[in-house]
Design a protein around this nucleic acid. Structure first.
Lengths: 337, 337
DNA sequence: CTGAAAGCGCTAACAC
DNA sequence: GTGTTAGCGCTTTCAG
């Protein structure tokens, strides 16, 4: 098959241990033989077999990245962050899209384990993913992005979701809104729970809680935002402001509203989460709670590599539980009531 | 370290070959021992070592996917297509984002080769990627998405770009436009070249070629569309219609135009390529040439698996050079001149 | 500085 | 049915 270390040893007239040493830049090889070997290596188009090397060295220099929806611009941005950090520290990343399916997530975890990735950064499908991963007993560090289960020993990087929702809701209130709804993603996702909490706390603080507040959840998709908003319209209880659990849901909400005679922000104000690239388009101009996506990915990768024990990790140690401050980006989808 | 086949053999009181056979479902193992082994396997949390298996079987059941910009919604959609097909046929995919950098692409090819992926689907950074990959002499099948070099033996799935651009340009002409510009991506990308050709052919056919047609190219990014449109504005030669090489460029063009006092489609009509998800938002409502992204990914994966010799491949054989028919999606960014 | 040899975890003949 | 053994391509002692 492909050329091996033995082939090149034969040609160079040395033992294949020497070839190995030369290729791995061990100091105890004479410059002369090293050069010779490297040259042969090149003419023969030798490519080291990472599989074989991994077997003896017991490492793969690979981490896994589990993402639920590569189609939501939030995640590619995060992925770029972890990838860039990992690559620049000698690790490759195996990016897997779980498509919001628990089974797919589970299958990937199994496969990645078999492939002996040295760590996992996971943006879980749901809160139960944490337990599932715990049970899988990977023996390999795991860091969560955007989700936490409450386990004290868990590693995560996450937006301060409660605070973020609180901020956004208070902003609505400052604008004079009293009937504020929340349209969420997966009801049992960690961030959804925290965002509902922040939203409720803000209402409570301003004594706006008596209202029959609308809180709906289904999934983190545009279609779901659309469908939920449609329900509201049909039920005749469209609030004057809605906080959506992410930008694409917000986009779906706006779409439903506008195709049914409501104007945004004229009739209803909308705030999203994430600040995806498309939120800033003049025509979209969505008010939203920003997350430093790329940076969060980088931080997650850094923490993971720390955990793996990669000593290349640059700069100071980071805490294993990293909470990001939210930032409200005020654009054009909100208006004074 | 982690539990191996030998550990479980010892406990089961059999040779480790038997364990291997049981785990791989070879028929020549008694049901009884098989069951026993599988049970031990579970209590001990055994996970087969894909590295070791790969070494002896000489396969990895993994393909590589090179994508230039995971941040452009076009590519995640394609990626999902290849991933879904690959997964359902027993292959995993190593998704790599080259970020439009030749070096990164090159590095990934090297790494993927070392990891012994069994095939590559690549959406190249530029036309020179083909040669580079050719020279790398992977000994592994490669299929290109959205790009071809002219090499007759090459495998690809691609939109009929010339036809697509021709269609779009003729549509402009039907609407009465005579001053039509083209704002491209990378000048030396295969699709850009073909699209310029289609655009020029359409102008030629309708004797509109004498005009000093604007053809500008830089990169497949929104910022580049914005910058190029800005140039046009400053040079005072804004056409009445512009064909953009993809949707995010189109979005950038529209953004530049609208923030400088032009209206779309009032003053200038715009057509993009790809029909990304966001193009269909009512507020964007971009007229565009659609590509069946997900399907193209699936087809690419299918062809690649055929090439690899995976006999699971379902249905009929597909040609190794698959050209997709373009489809013009007429929405709201074009108007009669 | 270099060679010989063991062994990483597993599969696949080949025996019995 | 099951055990024995060689070996996948490489790194790494241990000698010399």
């Amino acid at each position: 098959m492909s050329v091996t270390i033995k082939d090149i040893a034969k040609i160079a007239g040395v033992s294949y241990a020497t070839v190995s040493r030369a290729l791995n830049d061990h100091s105890e090889v004479s410059e002369k033989t090293k050069e010779k070997i490297i040259q042969i290596t090149e003419v023969m188009g030798y490519s080291p077999n990472a599989i074989a090397r991994g077997l003896v060295r017991k490492n793969t220099n690979t981490i896994g990245l589990l993402i639920p929806d590569i189609t939501n611009p939030y995640f590619p941005e995060v992925a770029r962050g972890v990838e860039d950090y990992a690559i620049s520290h000698g690790f490759n990343v195996f990016l897997c899209n779980t498509n919001w399916e628990e089974k797919k997530e589970y299958d990937y975890i199994r496969v990645l384990r078999e492939k002996r990735v040295e760590g996992l950064v996971v943006a879980p499908v749901s809160i139960s993913s944490h337990q599932k991963i715990e049970e899988a007993d990977l023996k390999t560090p795991v860091i969560y992005i955007g989700s936490k289960s409450g386990d004290k020993n868990e590693n995560y990087v996450i937006l301060d979701n409660a605070k973020a929702a609180f901020m956004a809701t208070e902003y609505f209130i400052e604008l004079g809104h009293e009937n504020i709804g929340f349209i969420g993603g997966y009801e049992n996702s960690s961030s959804n729970v925290d965002r509902v909490k922040g939203y409720r706390d803000a209402l409570k603080k301003h004594c706006l809680e008596k209202e029959i507040n609308v809180v709906k959840s289904s999934s983190y998709k545009r279609s779901s935002g659309y469908a939920l908003a449609l329900e509201l319209i049909k039920e005749g209880r469209v609030p004057s402001a809605v906080l959506a659990a992410n930008d694409i849901i917000a986009l779906g909400v706006i779409e439903a509203l506008e195709t049914h005679g409501y104007t945004v922000p004229g009739d209803v104000s909308v705030i999203g989460f994430d600040d995806i690239l498309f939120a800033s388009l003049p025509k979209i101009n969505l008010t939203t709670v920003a997350q430093p996506k790329y940076e969060m990915g980088g931080v997650a990768a850094k923490i993971l590599l720390q955990l793996i024990g990669c000593n290349n990790v640059d700069g100071d140690k980071i805490l294993n539980q990293y909470i990001v401050e939210p930032k409200l980006i005020i654009r054009g989808t909100c208006r004074k009531k």
